[in-house]
Design a protein around this nucleic acid. Structure first.
Length: 206
DNA sequence: CAATAGATCATCT
DNA sequence: GATGATCTATTGC
């Protein structure tokens, strides 16, 4: 029993073989599936590669960044702060190391499994509303580094019924280098987005 | 509600 | 040896 969620075709490699910014925007609303768990992607960030000082690949090809320089449509999973794993999807053609960080999901399937992995968090919006949280909730680790996301147990699908939404934009979160361009994209007003920037969150109309 | 300390380790200098 | 594309708990207002 795989993909117990209503989801359609797997995104083909050609989807990923485009500029990281386009891929980041277009991944919003798509369905990430890993084993019995699945979630709707509601927040992403683009990392542009060599010209992007905040990107791991900006300092060139190293053992860790090897997969970023490979073909698109593969997972790049790394350990951050010694504690959490972050999931990226490799974009752009081979040898161009752009990628997209998956920052938040709206849980759709395997909710009880996610709750167990997340140490008893009960509220659905808090199960996967951050890059370290969603990997833990879905059981994604560095074992999936380099995995082909166009086939296998970790895949991204088109939803069977697309829901309309507005795309919000902001600067990336947790980037200390300045200035940082607006490369974070999220589904406007979705409760599973990790943090609504003050500049964009509408004040309570009154 | 906002700010911050602490956890913890692979990676690169 | 310093540094993070983070998260949680705790403290302070």
């Amino acid at each position: 029993m795989r993909c117990s969620v209503r989801c359609g075709a797997v995104l083909p490699r050609s989807f990923y073989a485009r500029p990281a910014i386009e891929v980041a925007k277009d991944l919003l609303g798509k369905i990430l599936v890993h084993g019995e768990t699945a979630g709707r992607i509601v927040e992403t960030e683009a990392y542009l590669g060599l010209a992007d000082a905040a990107a791991h690949a900006s300092r060139g090809r190293t053992p860790r960044t090897e997969v970023l320089f490979g073909p698109p449509g593969h997972a790049y999973v790394y350990l951050i702060y010694g504690l959490y794993e972050c999931l990226n999807l490799v974009a752009e053609p081979e040898h161009s190391p752009g990628c997209v960080l998956i920052r938040a999901l709206e849980p759709l399937a395997g909710i009880e499994t996610m709750r167990r992995r997340r140490g008893g968090i009960t509220r659905i919006e808090q199960l996967a509303n951050g890059p370290g949280k969603l990997t833990r909730a879905m059981g994604i680790t560095r074992r999936q580094n380099g995995a082909d996301v166009t086939r296998g147990s970790l895949t991204v699908h088109v939803p069977e019924r697309a829901e309309a939404f507005q795309t919000g934009v902001s600067r990336r979160i947790g980037i200390t280098r300045n200035p940082d361009p607006p490369l974070r994209f999220f589904i406007q007003d979705n409760s599973c987005v990790s943090r609504m920037p003050r500049s964009l969150s509408s004040p309570p109309a009154r």
